[in-house]
């Protein structure tokens, strides 16, 4: 068993994580919508690291397809990294429920559907790891992105429960909470340099923390303390703030 399954493999964090795991000798399944567009990237990883990399079609919103998606692997994955994410548009999601639904279902419902399948298998075989990429946005709802934030908050709670459940089966679950990351998703935002991680830094941190069975990982590290402060601002104060 040497394969790692990466879900939502088109995101910049997923790609950097794929390279990181391949560098350490793992083969890869890369799953995403329009997986054929990942062929060039799969080739990149193969040239860099001489590992086997396969791309697989996956629609995270097509819940019914998830059982058969997971059954197709000849060699079932050693571990899974879920990097599915859709930021969406906050203002649109306030007036257009379809946008809100898209954000919630992509970041939460779809991930639950798929990870349920995988968790049940890992539990049965008593091995494996699950890394879920959530967000600091899930630590406290803010007006600028609370639809996305609430979906990520749900995901964080889900991963916490899963970690609790699978502990007895030696399956480790890690929650990753990135702060600002310089990716396609954030390319139009003016992010403060010192708080912003490069995808590769996030990937290296994920690999290291996962190998050490860490439960919760903030990247960059200072986000743990920033969020501690933000979570502890009293609500009467917080409700008037713009952060």
């Amino acid at each position: 068993m040497s394969y790692i399954l990466i879900i939502g493999a088109r995101s910049d964090i997923a790609k950097a994580t794929a390279r990181e795991y391949a560098k350490h000798g793992y083969d890869l399944y890369l799953a995403a919508r329009n997986a054929n567009e990942l062929e060039e990237f799969a080739n990149d990883v193969m040239v860099r690291s001489q590992r086997v990399v396969k791309t697989i079609e996956l629609d995270i919103l097509n819940y019914d397809s998830h059982p058969s998606f997971y059954e197709q692997f000849e060699e079932s994955p050693l571990g899974v990294i879920c990097a599915v994410g859709y930021l969406g548009e906050q203002s649109k999601s306030q007036t257009d429920f379809n946008e809100a639904k898209q954000i919630i279902n992509t970041n939460y419902t779809g991930v639950v559907s798929l990870l349920n399948n995988i968790a049940n298998d890992f539990e049965k075989r008593k091995s494996g790891f699950i890394v879920g990429i959530s967000s600091v946005a899930g630590d406290r709802g803010r007006k600028s992105n609370y639809i996305y934030g609430s979906a990520k908050a749900a995901l964080t709670a889900y991963l916490s429960g899963l970690r609790n459940r699978l502990y007895a089966s030696q399956v480790h679950v890690m929650t990753v909470k990135p702060g600002f990351v310089a990716t396609k998703m954030t390319k139009d935002m003016d992010l403060p340099e010192k708080l912003t991680a490069q995808p590769r830094e996030v990937a290296e941190a994920i690999y290291k923390a996962q190998q050490k069975n860490k439960s919760i990982l903030y990247t960059k590290w200072m986000w743990r303390w920033i969020m501690l402060i933000i979570r502890n601002i009293p609500e009467w104060k917080f409700k008037g703030m713009s952060i």
Partner: peptide, 16 residues
């Protein structure tokens, strides 16, 4: 310059 094309994201290995 006024217009900068940031090439760093164009980072695939193609063949060896």
């Amino acid at each position: 310059s006024d217009i900068v094309i940031h090439m760093r994201p164009h980072d695939y290995f193609i063949n060896f």
